[in-house]
């Protein structure tokens, strides 16, 4: 396409008086014959923009809108060129610097210039839906672990726990499971401040206990948002992604092979 434009544009671009012996097709991009023309163009443009607008006032660090930048691999996939890591790092550094320019003064060229480096979907714009404490004072949280799903409702109270309508000792025979179910409350010293009413299904006891830990921690965060970081450190917020590995054909289990038999 660029080549066709160059063909049609080349005679028009010349002055009237000049005798053109023949029209030679010229690529639009000077880096057409390099192996990574699109990246080179962008890089040159970014460098140019950085030179021109580098002195515009910037926002204090951390205040610019969070943008999900493409990683090197994502950029390579998007434009289909083998971009060198060093070049991409240099380029993305400049892009991030340009992004710091104060949004009121941000020229349109810069916006266009850094666009190819943004991911299509800005994950930082995804905000979780807020689950407020309802009019009965309950907060709700959902947690999963292995194949268990737990839903927990927390109200302020004295530390009473009902899980599927059963007391904690009926629901979990092992003391370890009881502790891990209430780990969010226990590690935050909140056991005697809330009552828990929870439903769990699926999986075994360990999975249910740890699903409950997550559900209770999330419900606790609704009551006290400041506890989110300590709860994350206590390991209650992040979903543990490990599940049962699937069985494969030719294997006895996921990895186990049948015993070797001589013929």
């Amino acid at each position: 396409m660029a080549l066709l434009e160059a063909l049609s544009g080349a005679p028009g671009g010349g002055t009237e008086g000049v005798q053109v012996t023949f029209a030679r097709p010229m690529p639009v991009s000077p880096s057409y014959f390099s192996r990574q023309p699109e990246f080179n163009d962008s890089f040159v443009l970014v460098q140019d923009l950085a030179r021109r607008f580098g002195r515009l006032p910037t926002l204090p660090p951390g205040q610019a809108e969070r943008v999900a930048w493409k990683t090197k691999e994502q950029y390579r996939l998007a434009i289909g060129e083998a971009v060198k890591a060093r070049d991409y790092a240099a380029c993305i550094g400049l892009v991030k610097r340009l992004h710091q320019i104060h949004p009121d003064l941000m020229p349109e060229e810069v916006k266009q210039g850094i666009r190819p480096f943004k991911r299509d979907i800005n994950i930082y714009l995804n905000t979780p839906k807020l689950m407020p404490v309802d009019r009965f004072g309950r907060s709700h949280g959902v947690g999963k672990r292995k194949s268990s799903i737990a839903r927990a409702w927390l109200v302020e109270g004295m530390g009473e726990v009902l899980i599927n309508g059963k007391t904690l000792n009926d629901a979990f025979g092992r003391v370890h499971d009881r502790e891990s179910a209430l780990w969010g409350l226990k590690s935050m010293d909140r056991i005697d401040k809330y009552n828990v009413w929870a439903l769990v299904e699926g999986g075994g006891t360990t999975g249910q206990a740890e699903a409950l830990a997550m559900a209770i921690a999330k419900a606790l965060v609704v009551h006290e948002p400041a506890l989110k970081t300590p709860l994350r450190k206590a390991g209650c917020i992040t979903r543990d992604p490990r599940t049962v590995e699937r069985k494969k054909p030719g294997h006895v289990k996921a990895r186990k092979m049948p015993a070797w038999v001589k013929r």
Partner: peptide, 16 residues
Amino acid sequence: DEKNVSDRWTLAGGGV
């Protein structure tokens, strides 16, 4: 103390 007592009380399923 109050914290330990209520911890154990809750873990024991409400003082069983």
